[in-house]
Amino acid sequence: MSNLSDVFLEAGQGECFWLMGDFYAIKSAPAQTGGTCSIVEIESFPGNGPPPHIHHQEDECLYVIEGAFSIILGSRVLDIADGDFVRIPKGTLHTYQNVGAVPGKLLAVFSPGGFEQILAEAGKAGTRECPDSEESADTLQRLLALAEKYHMEVYP
């Protein structure tokens, strides 16, 4: 059987990063799923979300654990909240924004896995208790520079 940490994580556990003001915890990486997927918990703060982008290699699914979000999915705008689910096929322009007054939580599934590694390269390792209040202004530039490596287009 696998190590317990390969099959069970308590709240707040996992490889964690701050990126563009939000907190990301990798719950399952491709090494644990045979490459089929990666799962990331996202704590998004009011007004935050990634720039519009397209994944050319992986599908992405978002499940709202709690909070209110606006999602751009191609030419559609969706308002989603607790318990809602969105599947984003590869090649689809998308983004989300926390439109609530409090932090919201999403569970993101990428298939196949591997895209979560952009968090390690563009973000800053940390814990939920230690927000990255000094995130550098060049974060978007790092994302743009990494876009090709991760088979994506970013629209700032």
Results as ranks from 00 to 15, higher is better:
M1S: 12
S2Y: 10
N3C: 09
N3K: 15
E10V: 12
A11D: 14
G12S: 11
E15I: 10
F17C: 02
G21S: 06
A25E: 10
A25V: 08
I26R: 01
K27N: 01
S28D: 08
S28M: 15
A29V: 12
P30N: 00
P30E: 06
Q32Y: 03
Q32A: 13
T33H: 04
G35C: 13
T36V: 13
S38G: 14
V40A: 02
I42F: 03
S44G: 08
P51F: 15
P52L: 13
H53A: 07
H53G: 03
H53Y: 07
I54W: 01
H55D: 10
H56T: 08
C61H: 03
L62T: 01
L62A: 06
L62I: 14
V64N: 02
G67R: 01
I72M: 03
L73R: 05
S75E: 15
R76D: 15
R76N: 12
I80W: 06
A81Y: 03
A81F: 07
G83Q: 04
V86E: 00
V86Y: 00
I88N: 04
P89M: 12
P89S: 10
K90A: 09
K90Q: 14
G91R: 07
G91Q: 08
T92C: 08
V99A: 04
A101C: 03
V102P: 05
K105E: 03
A108T: 10
S111M: 11
P112A: 06
P112Y: 08
G114P: 02
F115M: 09
F115Y: 11
F115H: 04
I118D: 05
A122D: 04
A125C: 06
G126F: 01
G126W: 03
T127E: 11
E129N: 09
C130H: 10
C130A: 13
C130T: 14
S133D: 13
E134V: 13
E134K: 07
S136G: 15
A137R: 10
A137I: 14
A137Q: 12
T139L: 10
L140M: 13
L140K: 01
Q141A: 15
R142A: 07
L143K: 02
L144Q: 11
K149E: 13
H151Q: 12
H151P: 00
V154N: 08
V154L: 14
